[in-house]
Amino acid sequence: MLYIKCPYCGLRAQKEFSYGGDATVKRPNINEEVPSEDWDNFVYMRKSPRGKHIELWQHIAGCRQWIKVQRDTATHEIFQTAKVTEEIR
């Protein structure tokens, strides 16, 4: 079980969190024309890297904040966590 440092609450067990996918995906702006290729990329296309990955987790059984977690998908090592408004590296 992973040990994830919530930037708001501190180190907590994985079972308090819910996984939320790739954190580097950016939603096209609302009320703006979006080329369909960009839209398809946003909705469907995800990388599945082996190694470092910045992902979203939500502290659902805690403060309910969505957070960023930089994790190694192969070893589960967590390098850094941050608020969603903060940049990771």
């Binding site: 819910s18 939603r27 609302i30 979203l56 939500q58 659902i60 969505w66 969603v84």
Partner: peptide
């Protein structure tokens, strides 16, 4: 109910803060 709440929180916290 739970999914919708997370969904709303996702947009408020990440997409349209």
């Amino acid at each position: 109910a739970a999914n919708v709440l997370s969904h709303l929180e996702y947009y408020l916290q990440i997409v349209w803060p």
